[in-house]
Amino acid sequence: MRRRSVLGYGAAAFGVIGMTLFAGWWRVDGPGAPQAVGARPLPLTEMEFSLTNHEDRTVGPETLIGSPTIAFFGFTYCPDVCPTTLADISDWLDALEGDAEKLNVVFITVDPERDTVEAMAEYVDYFHPAIRGWTGTERQIARAVEGFRATYEKVPTESGGYTMNHTASVFLFDAQGRFVSTIDYHEPREFAVPKIRRAMNDEEAEGA
């Protein structure tokens, strides 16, 4: 009797442990896992969105295939992170000298409400000439962000306006549109430039 109840408790305990493990797996790695924010971006060839560049031309992920790509999200009403990122990228492009011409460099706004084609054109004009500004409808911007597995969120400010939280990492893709790596926000030039070179070398190795 006694042994039996011990066995019974043992079986119950195993059951509970098993269920806990299963529930854990379901929520963390299984079908119940949340969309991982830090997940790898899709290859550009698998993304689907249509935006407008600062020269009023229709662009999309297919526009970027054929050359290595540097892409990042931001908004022009951002006083700190975005000008810093744009200035950092301008600095990296200066370090690449003539090779910068072989790159697509795309700044995609997460604030299409204020960042019209004209606003983007005016803004990117102040940075390295290789930098293109892309904007579009809320829906298409959301699809682009989803493809990059990035995030953004509109946050009201005390003054009645709003600001945008957004992924500040810079994404690198090779000429075939495959994701290569990210450059963290404000990463030093000596780490950033070799990463860009790697995305460019992938192209040469594959394309030869």
Binding site: G38, T151, T163, N165, H166, T167, A168, T182, Y185
Partner: peptide, 12 residues
Amino acid sequence: LTSTNNQGVSSM
């Protein structure tokens, strides 16, 4: 203050 979390998302 701008802060960037471990997922690379910046907020102010």
